[in-house]
Design a protein around this nucleic acid. Sequence first.
DNA 1: TTACAATGACTGACTAGTCAGTCATAATTG
DNA 2: CAATTATGACTGACTAGTCAGTCATTGTAA
Lengths: 222, 222
Amino acid sequence: MSKPSKLSERRVEPVKPAAAGASRRADRSAERRAAIVQAAMDEFIARGFAATRLDDVAKRAGVAKGTIYLHFKDKESMFEELIRTAIVPFVGRLAAPPPAGGSVRDMVEALARMFLQEIAGTRRADLVRLIIAEGPRFPSIADFYYREVVSRGLAAMRALIQLAITRGEIREPKLAQHPQLMIAPMMVAVIWKSLFERHAPLDAEAMLQTHLDLIFGARRPT
Amino acid sequence: MSKPSKLSERRVEPVKPAAAGASRRADRSAERRAAIVQAAMDEFIARGFAATRLDDVAKRAGVAKGTIYLHFKDKESMFEELIRTAIVPFVGRLAAPPPAGGSVRDMVEALARMFLQEIAGTRRADLVRLIIAEGPRFPSIADFYYREVVSRGLAAMRALIQLAITRGEIREPKLAQHPQLMIAPMMVAVIWKSLFERHAPLDAEAMLQTHLDLIFGARRPT
DNA sequence: TTACAATGACTGACTAGTCAGTCATAATTG
DNA sequence: CAATTATGACTGACTAGTCAGTCATTGTAA
């Protein structure tokens, strides 16, 4: 947090670059922090916030419990910071891929496919579930998630829908008022994978295609 | 679970119906049990399983902590039994309303509206969220939920879709393979209400209409 | 370059507190 | 009165967070 780690860089390796593995103090500290973050993520996903023991996190990270408190104020702020850190990478993605040249359907399909590959069927799916689970108890997380992911994602989706409407690819103009409808099957896929996959595996790809057919019209009407 | 609670019913009021307020032993016991169930539900929804204190449940139910253990084996089985108890009423509903005479769209719309009124916008929405949250840690609950609600609900929905397809109300035959698509907006509505309602209220009714228009075709194409 | 001093990351035993579950006692009922 | 039901003080296991002490790394002096 308020670590002036810059100080350790003002001199650029006076001596001994130490072969290959970085062994400088700041590096090790960063490594440990990363290990804690990783371990904590695993534990929180597996047990939820309240049931996670920091002793277990420390053990899994290969670190003493006290070390956790060198990096985080307490369990709660660790949790919050963790989620934030994990979400940030996606904020980039949401804005990054500039609309390709093809049809809107192709763009939406590409987005959805990316979502399915990168989220559903990944540990990140459980992260989404974790946010759903703990959101009401951590309003700041729900706020952050809404601001950084949901509202942006929906805005982007709305723009795509509007484009599709002007191009005539989508006939239902009201859809622009409910971009959630575009996302809904993805959310269901994520939840399904977490809860029911072993009861009945879900072919999210096929479901997606059907969904797109409903919205854009079947590719071959008969 | 293995509680033969039926025993309390074998005799039907031997004597003294006791004016108005029931005060017979079994009745009081049932009342207390109901109070505990209610209180526990509130606490579990508000805090999740691990963070819920039985002291709080007892206090809220107006009962001593020991009393809880007269009705439930332990916290965990109380939680499981609770969820089961809360879900059962819906199993009936899912099978109960026999297909009305109107169009399939009307039937689906009626079902969805019932869902929105009785689940989304109710404390029950949080129950769904609770199941999503704790499901992975309580496989028996996920199993039960899948068996009693999800699989039945999807089967019913699939039947309706098939009917609509044969009647020509729905053009997309693949939809029968993915009844989840029919439900998806409802799930999103439930989650939205729990997490984001204060950021951006969701008009679930309007969203439902748009969704139905996508599936059944807009009522007025232009 | 080498010896010594300062730093602060790291440790883990410890404290203070929490909470599920128990049980001796009290209250109620028939 | 005996039997049943309810109570809540109590126990013991468990855990978030602390802190005095250690020691590898870094800085400085000779």
